[in-house]
Nucleic acid binder design. Structure first.
Lengths: 341, 341
DNA sequence: CGATGAAACCGAAACGTTTCGGTAGGGGGA
DNA sequence: TCCCCCTACCGAAACGTTTCGGTTTCATCG
């Protein structure tokens, strides 16, 4: 077992004090360029990489950020958000020398508990908050822990910074478009109750209909899974009065709806128009290709990571916004029957 | 700034030595039950959680496991494997008190480098190896670092433990099925060159055809993306001799193929049968629903985590196997034209 | 030429835990 | 009664870094 080489070995080899090695490698002051170069060369030659254990204990910085995913296992698989988000996060963490600590809390309570331990144990320097609910208990918790955090798609939390993509305008555009081509009977397949993005989408749907003096079509409560979309199709298409358009709170439910509609012999978009939300890759490859609102999880991750790192370095609390989600027109939308454009 | 409470505070409060607090909480010997209970109660009351920083420095254990994902950003999004795998891993790690450190190496070289730093810096106690290539350079690296590891779906690496799901038998069954209903002209849309699971699937396709004395249909080299499936459809369906069945190395490519086939007016399964591999959720909701081989990323993650934890605790090198991937019959397969069952 | 100050470098404390050798105290055997 | 041993507990070293106060060196200026 070859003893792990440490900073003392490098110091001895380079003929300087331990503190000088530290200063040299971290760009600190009080080190001549000649010494710095020599130390750097020695460290490289010996293949020394600072121990994150020693470093984190001493510097009170772990150089790791936490992400506690609060989702049921099933949803995670086809989830369009996290893969992209994590990719974006990593792209800024890597050059900054940070790592991402991932945990999964199957329930909100479990998630909050893991978050608490994460903070108390000092395992991370900051955390990302996703799937924020209204009055999320994690906010006061983080405040209590003095743990830097950034909330994703939950602006103005008053406690922590946030990075948000406007989802309202895109969905509003989509609704207006539907109405402009003649739809009057527009149903909504909603997401999990209590989540801010579920409520937000439902509220846009409602407000646009109201602003046009149109009746509120039926609302089916879903949970963002494909299965929920299937069930919604059963309910909506089997009902007495079939809407001419169905606005789903995400793509997965829309795809489930599409699938079930086809099985029931209901043609999309001829008999009913269907829209999604998110812009998953596969949405372009189902039939008909899904008209949706394209979100940007990667950009969200990138910006969130930047904000969080700045926040750790003592930056002020900020509320950032990235380019809004925009409508992507594909083929699952058409004028209602008997009113062809 | 309320000073972080540490083990000394607990020791003072409980009226015992620091070492006794440690022993009491970690179940060590030399502590009476009465004292243990009192210490535990005191710690709980004060809300003390051991600092992972101090602990990891002292114990030479980080209680974190590393996963370096080597994939281009685009593939990650729709990827059916990682979400499930990570879910499975976490389900084991959480009760064990371990965390998962996630990193993304966009290229194999970058991935190997991140792995190297991860090991040298002592940031993790062990790592998961996925997307293993033949002669993967990470094996000798890990050996050099003395870092426990478990290879996923890459059995018999000689260097490290492995957990594997048999993918061959399922695909073989699928091929036999195709042949038994009359297909003689079977093409293959392969995955990224060099990856063991790409080569494995190609080799099953080849060997089954050979064992039946059938000609090897064309092979299109893909890269596991939906787009590659689209391109494969263009090539295969536009060629002079259209195969009667196309076996894709994964579902995403199969879905891309399906999508493009429909656009070209080629009917599936009437004109051509298409099969996938993986068993992504959405495969059941495309049209026609995709016949595929169902893999189990969650089970793989669960078992891999168990093996890795055991390996860290000094367990022997093992090669585990979980239940093989099995065919899921859906509607994208039918007898070739003019030979209806 | 001596005082002054800055730059370069050093030594040691501190971070919070685990671990290990050591000590007091009490019960049991001879 | 004496000795031994075991249990319960304590104190201090060790882990590998950063940080901070202190010391040397040397050029500059009066």
């Amino acid at each position: 077992m070859p003893k792990r080489i440490s900073i003392v070995d490098v110091a001895r080899e380079a003929g300087v004090a331990i503190s000088s090695v530290s200063a040299a490698l971290n760009g600190g002051p009080g080190v001549s360029e000649a010494t710095r170069a020599r130390v750097r060369e020695t460290a490289d030659r010996m293949g020394w990489v600072p121990s994150v254990r020693g470093r984190s204990l001493s510097s009170k910085r772990t150089r790791a950020l936490g992400l506690v995913v609060q989702r049921q296992a099933g949803v995670l698989e086809a989830d369009p958000f996290f893969a992209g988000f994590i990719g974006g996060v990593e792209s800024v963490l890597e050059p900054a020398g940070y790592a991402l600590l991932l945990q999964i809390g199957r329930t909100p309570e479990a998630g909050a508990d893991r978050l608490r331990r994460l903070g108390l144990s000092g395992a991370v320097d900051g955390v990302f908050l996703t799937d924020v609910s209204v009055d999320d208990p994690r906010f006061p918790l983080l405040d209590h822990l003095h743990l830097p955090a950034v909330a994703v798609n939950a602006p103005g939390s008053m406690w922590v910074s946030s990075v948000t993509q406007d989802h309202r305008s895109g969905l509003r555009d989509l609704m207006e478009q539907l109405i402009s081509i003649g739809h009057r009977d527009i149903a909504h397949v909603a997401g999990t109750a209590g989540l801010v993005h579920s409520e937000e989408r439902a509220s846009v749907w409602r407000s646009v209909l109201e602003s046009h003096g149109l009746p509120l079509g039926p609302v089916i409560r879903g949970d963002f899974t494909t299965e929920a979309g299937v069930r919604a199709a059963d309910t909506l298409l089997g009902g007495p009065r079939v809407p001419t358009a169905v606005v789903c709170a995400n793509d997965l439910m829309a795809i489930g709806f599409l699938s079930r509609a086809k099985a029931l012999g209901v043609r999309v978009p001829d008999d009913v128009s269907v829209t999604g939300f998110d812009g998953v890759l596969l949405g372009a490859h189902v039939h008909p290709p899904l008209t949706t609102v394209m979100t940007s999880p990667v950009a969200l991750g990138t910006r969130a990571a930047e904000v969080l790192l700045a926040s750790i370095d003592g930056g002020p609390r900020v509320d950032e916004t990235i380019a809004p989600a925009a409508v992507v027109d594909r083929a699952s939308v058409a004028p209602p029957r008997g009113r062809a454009a």
